[in-house]
Nucleic acid binder design. Sequence first.
DNA 1: TCTCTTAAGCGAAACGTTTCGCTCTATAGG
DNA 2: CCTATAGAGCGAAACGTTTCGCTTAAGAGA
Lengths: 335, 335
Amino acid sequence: MATTIKDIAKKTGLGLATISKYLNGGNVLEENKIAIEEAIKILDFRVNEFARGLKTSKSKTIGVVIPELSNIFCTSIITVIEDILRQNGYGILVCDCRTDEKLEYEATEFLVNKMVDGIISMPVSKNGEHLKLPLSKGIPVVLIDRKVEGLNVDAVLVDNVAAAENAVEYLIDHGHREIGIICGPRDVFTSHQRQLGYSQAFIKKGLFPKQELIEYGDYTVESGYECLKKLLVKNEMLSALFVTNYEMTLGAIIAINELSIKIPEQISLIGFDNMHLSQVVQPKLTIISQPIHQIAENVAHIMLKRLVQDKYDEAQVINLSTQLILGESVLSKNI
Amino acid sequence: MATTIKDIAKKTGLGLATISKYLNGGNVLEENKIAIEEAIKILDFRVNEFARGLKTSKSKTIGVVIPELSNIFCTSIITVIEDILRQNGYGILVCDCRTDEKLEYEATEFLVNKMVDGIISMPVSKNGEHLKLPLSKGIPVVLIDRKVEGLNVDAVLVDNVAAAENAVEYLIDHGHREIGIICGPRDVFTSHQRQLGYSQAFIKKGLFPKQELIEYGDYTVESGYECLKKLLVKNEMLSALFVTNYEMTLGAIIAINELSIKIPEQISLIGFDNMHLSQVVQPKLTIISQPIHQIAENVAHIMLKRLVQDKYDEAQVINLSTQLILGESVLSKNI
DNA sequence: TCTCTTAAGCGAAACGTTTCGCTCTATAGG
DNA sequence: CCTATAGAGCGAAACGTTTCGCTTAAGAGA
């Protein structure tokens, strides 16, 4: 059987309460402190987190629910979050829900049953149904990237409207008019925002966004591929394209290469996320880059704050802005 | 306070032991079963995992230690592992150690302290020092991708020697002689294996691998970039290149594009991992593809097996083979 | 009818912490 | 010298399960 606090008490001749006090940072005489530390080292004592959790109802574990672990945007953020939380003694329990609302619900329930102290969610469901359980139990929730209407919850967002608007405005300024967009799913918050920015850019310039220039994918490589082909069938004059996430950008490029269409001579392209890809493809891509590090830091710190807070004040919503990084994938078009 | 087993007992008029028996799949009269289920639903009862863990010493959680969460090979595997384990009631506690031995050790200790039931590790350290703690506590360990000498532990590996040998042989068969290789770190198992395969291919063909054709990176994009440049300085006649992981392949391509070198006219290239990239770049890449799904499935199933096994028989080592996927990045060279 | 077997249910003890409320000692203030 | 105060230490109870060993009831076999 493993060493317990009782063994340490016996070894040092001190009481249980004193050992416990030491473990939790209380005041203990210097000589006793030394004795305890020695006993702990010799007996290789480790706190039994089950017993501690049973008393304190804290697991020092945060649940993370994301749409896809194989999505580079998700994992980039998780890396940083994990780093910060671990430095603060927290572990992260990761669940990917394959962009499925039912699985998302199940994953969240799974995490609540696993007694996580908090939940970080990049929500798939529109109404955030899955968050009601943790919220009803007083488990703090922090949202990444997508806001859920009607739920008073902390969130760290990116100004997707402005991001898309900038990209499309840039294309319009370069003389493009027939600008296609490959959006994410219709009912996803970020996707909707990016489409809104697209439309606003047109309107701002006194133009009208045409319905046949808009295609909806599901944030996968395959859908980017399919959407590009559909766009080309419907729009012979397509001169530029804006793709609204990394994976679909990949898909679109695969299709473009396959059709032997030249970027930017035949089609101008603005992609999304991930700086590496933008440099690998020839020519270098012009992309919208999201502040991944900042997003993650904000999420982690808000969570840490909530974990030590007893009363819940107003939810905190942080809005970060994106950057348009210029490559060589957009050509000026003579009008 | 949350509902406990006692509340269920009170509500149904049954004893504690009976409720517990029901919860753990024991035999209970049909009518009592129904009563219990109803009470559970009405009172929204959830097992307190702390209390259960305290009694059973099982957390139903598996720790995963990987070098980098932002490494696509790692996350692709984790996605599948997580899926399988969750279906079996297990959660995964993920730690990335930034390819740092010290952090790897700390992460493992952290996981042991968090009472994980098993540890899945893609080891960074050569001697597997970090695994001694879990092993000494009887916590099962399954290794991914890298074997640790002198440790009797389950492992799921890929035949990296054959993988590299195939790739290089293919290049030699296409008339190449000045074939550069960008390896991983010298002291990493897989890296060493891949270099071995490289050398063996030369020897098999009656040729000799020249030292100046070998460069060592550290599996990052940046190192791939640097290594390529170094190789070119040292080898004016370089006609082909084999890069031994995904990130370094990316780096090498960035450098090649930057130098306006044409693939495959000026240099032939065989990359590693990730099928998407291979189709995105122009021309399509010829790559070594690892059986990611199979690796993950094997790891998960071995772990599940160990979790229910009381006595430890001989460690199981599974060797999977890779595939050479042909693209258009290798040109036949007239000799 | 009696005995044996099996199924089902039961209470109490135990798991290893934290924490409440208490005691003891030493020191300072008057 | 006495008392008040603070610092340090202490034991016991409690957290919510699982499990051991027991009892009871029901049914089968003779």
